[in-house]
Amino acid sequence: MSQQPFQYEAPQSLAELWSTLDLGQDGTRFLAGGTDLLVKYKRKQLSVTRLVDIKNIPDLQGVWLDAALGLRIGALTTLTDLAAHPLVNEHVPVLAAAASKMASAQVRNRATVGGNLCNAAPSADLAPPLLVLQARIKTLSAAGERELPLRHFFAGPGLSTLRPGELVSEVILPLPEGNTRAVYLKQGLRQAMDIAMVGVAVKLKLSGSLCEEAAIALGAVSPVPLRAESAEQYLKGRKLDAQSIAEGADLAAKEASPISDVRASALYRSQLVAALLKQGLQQCAGILTEGEN
């Protein structure tokens, strides 16, 4: 590749990882699926002097249910495994659906949950559904572990609040209560293999057509994936009908601060937020009214 090649290491355990020095140095990067990192490296958008491959560390893998915390998803879980995992499909099907809409089969076979979040793209497809699911992020570093809500994880386009040498080990999801439904709607220019022009996740807790609780998250319309709080406030306690849905969608669109880029114009993105959100709210509401509730 004609750049000064980096040094490659592949620790087999956390112990081995922490025994290596200076993980926090500039140019030292963790390698997960590599589907973001290698593309950026090849395009010379990222300097890498040392690459620490964390794929072989068993502690970062797997999906399991924790009675106290909820669903715990190892950061190195691939999108393919996430989409197919029985626990994910049972408890948070919206996440499985979001994962299966991403990239291509080949990329999903490599790309990881942690990589999608750490890459911190405003358009990252897992971010909106995880935000409405109230995900918490568990991090590890030589100094110990931390836990923080996902909404405090993103700091800007391509930036997270991870500290030097710190990695994401898990995503923890409280199990959604009964009567909640969630959807993730993503719009690209193609129906597959596309980065979202806009992504919206909606989670509603309903009692009949009354919205007891609403969580709404938007992707690709602001520097970081975003909870649309004023729309959530507005919908809370309201009866869901055409008018409240339209109003809620418009409020959310106002919270977005999209930019124009090669994928879409800012104006269109704002309109798309409202349109997708309307669909999302209708779907959530519709599913429930049709369902057993």
Binding site: L31, K42, A103, S104, A105, Q106
Partner: peptide
């Protein structure tokens, strides 16, 4: 860069873009 699939091979039973896998991996 992982966008066309021409480089697809099967690694341990799964399809991957071999342009997005390091040989060392």
């Amino acid at each position: 860069s992982g966008e066309c699939g021409a480089c697809t091979v099967i690694m341990n039973g799964r399809s991957v873009n071999s342009c997005l896998v390091l040989a060392v991996e």
